[in-house]
Amino acid sequence: MTPISIAFLPLTDSAVLVAAREKGFAAGQDIDLKLVRSTSWATLRDRLVYGQVQAAHMLAPLAIAVTLGLSQHSAALAAPFKLNVNGNALTMSTAFAAALDPDLPRRIADPVAAAHDFATAIGLHHRKPIIGVVHRFSSHALMLRYWLAFAGVDPDRDVTLRVLPPSLMVEALRAGEIDGFIAGAPWASLAAADGIGELVAVGPRIWQRGVEKVLAFRTSWMEAEAELVDRLLRALSLAAQGTPSRIATNSGRADVSVNSRIAAVLAGSQWKS
């Protein structure tokens, strides 16, 4: 078997990689898949750029930023495989959300109206709201900027964006260090369940099928190992067919047994955050 190492962050959208390894899809393509757990995007990026791993589970905009030389050492990256679309939600503190449409489903359904209400709320607030994002080069940050622009809010002038690991968002909101955050699951739900935040907008209503994470390779390695990369992508594609997707869920075709099987695999301690 050919060894391949992939760096990942323990997030739900690493599911396809975990399934490819744990459910034998990689072994079926004669690949010995090793998953290298990372705790920050910076470290995941370093492992890919400096060749400690052959591929990485990466924020799509970060892959572009690394290629453009905007995120530390530049390296040409290629991303032939998408690992997830959407999944992010914007949460604001209850104090802030009080100025928004109180009808939550209506607020979520109309992100343009919500953005205008939000612009008004900024005016009512006595200081610039601080919003947590997971990374400068993330779909989260881009989506937030795009959404703020619906109502003419300048993300660099009218709000302060602060980078925080998603696992620290809820605590930072509770401590009043931030007024809101945009992150993937389950952080928005946790803040809502604790009564400290409210959902303001969700990814798919801002940007349909917004690319979230990709599998990024160093272009030079990918081109030199084309046959191996084909096998890996085949394994991941097969794994993805056995992994629940958001599309299946939306159309009510989610296979509950597949969901619970993959959930059981992901609950293994080495894959959890």
């Binding site: 920050s40 602060r162 980078v163 925080l164 690991p165």
Partner: peptide, 14 residues
């Protein structure tokens, strides 16, 4: 290298 706060630090450097 294992600290989750590296992203926060790099943002600040940027």
């Amino acid at each position: 290298l294992g600290s989750p706060s590296r992203d926060t630090l790099e943002e600040m450097l940027a």
